[in-house]
Structures are given as structure tokens and as C-alpha cells.
């Protein structure tokens, strides 16, 4: 069952097309990473999902309900953490959290106090005195103290220290264990890699990749470090080999996943002394997509 279903959403601001015919879905019990460079349309997508912006074209559904028309109904079952948390300077963190729980309904006071302790947040301070990280904690505590079926998180950890990031990851993994779904927009790729089952990559308002990390790794290159008894002639121009570099007797290169077998067969004839293969990280995927599109824009070869 799909919790989020986005079908051909286009959003224009005047003449500018912020989102161009995007499609994706998030299944129940899944953590979906939503990544892309700044200005790609991540926050616009999220605001459409929250019913704050109206899509120019297309439909988006959460729990099978229309995100624009049934916004209030949907919001009773979701929790949202914005990327840039702006709070009321004259209220304390504790007051804001209570207020949010009341507006959302289903707030759990016991869980609130637990989370306050976990995130190490002083609720008696006025919001104007909070740092960015502390403001984010306020939003996170309010979000996870509710019993939600879907968590929509827009770069929720950009101001947190590594310790708090870990607490956050525990929170979403726990939510996943309870069968909840998470839609996580993030810049911190290692985090996405650690927790997400699926990623959606957006660039310049278009979805350029969706699927599980496993699926995507097939499409990409492994990084190989190799040392052989005798040098491998012509490896540089071997089909599927990229970014070839040679240093003393050691060579490093990238190889297309589907050509890996051929390449290894070939080099093994020359007596392998050392072979390291590193699977592509999300960062590589991301960088590659980013650079690829850039190169295409400039008319270069891929």
C-alpha cells in the first residue's frame, strides 16, 4: 500500500517551473530519502504534500486522500519538521511543544518528556534564545511525541551535533519498527544511506532517479584499487573503465558495474597482488548525477 503517491505534479511560480511533472511513491513502513541540490524543488514538493502550495498540475495523495482538499484530515495523522525552524520568540520551547501537540491532537505527554530528556533540551527557555539546533529539537520533540502514521522531515538534522543526529536516527528507526513511514529530505547522505530503504533524487524540478539503493548501485561504478605483478597493458582504454590513474605500480580506476566481471577476468591474468573494491556511496551517486546533468547542460559527453 502506498502512503504517499505523487502523480505528475507540476508547480509553476509565474513563469518559473519549480517542479516539472514529478512522480514517486512511498510505501507503508518504508523510509524514503529525498535528496537533491539546493533549489532543486525539495521544499516545494514537501509544501505541496502538506497542502500549503497548490500544484499547477497533477495529483498528490497521502493515505489515499488529496493533499490539497483533505489537508486537515491528513494532518491529523502526520508529523512534520521543517528545515528552517522559526519559532515565536516570546514563547518558551515547552509552550511551543504543548501548543503543537494540541494543534495536532494525539500528543503523548509522557513521550514528550522522554524526548526532551533524550534530546537534552531545556523547555523553560524562550525561543529567541535557542540556537538553530535547539529550535530543530523543539520541532523534532513535537513531531515524535505524536502518534503519527507518516513523518515528513525536511532536512531535520542540519543543525544537530553528531550525538543528537544519532538520537534522531534512533527515533526514525523506532518509528519504522512500529510500521510507520518516513519521508526524509536530507543533505546528509551518510544518514540517508544508513536509514533509508528507498531514495528519490530530484534536480532542477525533475525526478532523475528513484529506487532502492541496491537498484541504483547496479547503475553505477565501483571504485577499484589494484596492484599486479606485471603491468596491465591497455587497461586505461578497456571498455567500462573510467577515471584511470596510475601511481607507481598501483592503479586506481572506476568500473561500470555490468563490466566488472570482464575487467576482473582480464586483470587476473597479470597476477593480482592487491585488489580493493569499494561499492559506490550515495555521495558518489549523487555527485555523479549532479555532474552528469551539468555536463549534459554544457554539451559534454557523459
Amino acid at each position: 500500500m502506498n502512503i504517499i503517491e505523487v502523480n505528475g505534479i507540476t508547480k509553476k511560480f509565474g513563469k518559473f517551473t519549480a517542479l516539472d511533472d514529478i512522480h514517486f511513491s512511498v510505501r507503508k513502513g518504508e523510509i524514503c530519502g529525498f535528496i537533491g541540490p539546493n533549489g532543486a524543488g525539495k521544499s516545494t514538493t514537501i509544501r505541496i504534500l502538506l497542502g500549503m502550495l497548490k500544484a499547477t498540475k497533477g495529483t498528490a495523495k497521502i493515505f489515499g486522500m488529496d493533499v490539497w482538499k483533505d489537508a486537515v484530515e491528513i494532518h491529523k495523522r502526520i508529523s512534520y519538521v521543517p528545515g528552517d525552524v522559526n519559532l515565536w520568540p516570546n514563547l518558551t520551547g515547552g509552550e511551543v511543544i504543548d501548543l503543537f501537540l494540541k494543534m495536532r491532537g494525539n500528543g503523548n505527554i509522557k513521550k514528550r518528556d522522554e524526548l526532551l530528556k533524550k534530546f537534552d533540551l531545556d523547555p523553560s527557555k524562550k525561543c529567541r534564545t535557542y540556537s538553530k539546533g535547539n529550535r530543530q529539537k523543539v520541532a523534532l520533540v513535537a513531531a515524535f511525541a505524536c502518534d503519527a502514521d507518516l513523518y515528513i522531515l525536511d532536512e531535520p538534522t542540519s543543525g544537530l551535533d553528531p550525538l543528537m543526529e544519532k538520537v534522531f536516527q534512533e527515533c526514525i528507526l523506532e518509528a519504522k519498527k512500529e510500521g510507520k513511514s518516513v519521508f526524509l529530505s536530507s543533505h546528509i547522505l551518510s544518514e540517508v544511506e544508513k536509514v533509508c530503504d528507498q531514495v528519490v533524487i530530484i534536480r532542477e524540478g525533475k525526478i532523475i532517479e528513484t529506487g532502492s539503493l541496491e537498484d541504483m548501485r547496479h547503475l553505477t561504478r565501483n571504485k577499484i584499487t589494484l596492484q599486479t605483478k606485471t603491468p596491465v597493458p591497455g587497461l586505461k582504454d578497456f571498455p567500462g573503465v573510467h577515471s584511470f590513474a596510475e601511481e607507481n605500480s598501483r592503479v586506481t580506476f572506476q568500473v561500470d558495474t555490468e563490466k566488472l566481471d570482464e575487467v576482473i577476468r582480464h586483470v587476473s591474468q597479470f597476477g593480482i597482488l592487491k585488489l580493493e573494491s569499494v561499492p559506490p556511496t550515495l555521495e558518489d551517486l549523487f555527485m555523479r548525477h549532479y555532474k552528469t546533468s551539468k555536463a549534459t547542460d554544457e554539451g559534454g559527453a557523459v
Binding site: 502538506l50 500549503m52 522559526n86
Partner: peptide, 14 residues
């Protein structure tokens, strides 16, 4: 303008 209505409208408030 101060990005504070998103807290409200992302919850069950019309």
C-alpha cells in the same frame, strides 16, 4: 512572512 504558519498548517488546523 516569518515562516511560522507552516507549523500551524502542517498540523490539523484549517
Amino acid at each position: 512572512n516569518k515562516n511560522r504558519t507552516e507549523h500551524i498548517y502542517s498540523r490539523a488546523v484549517s
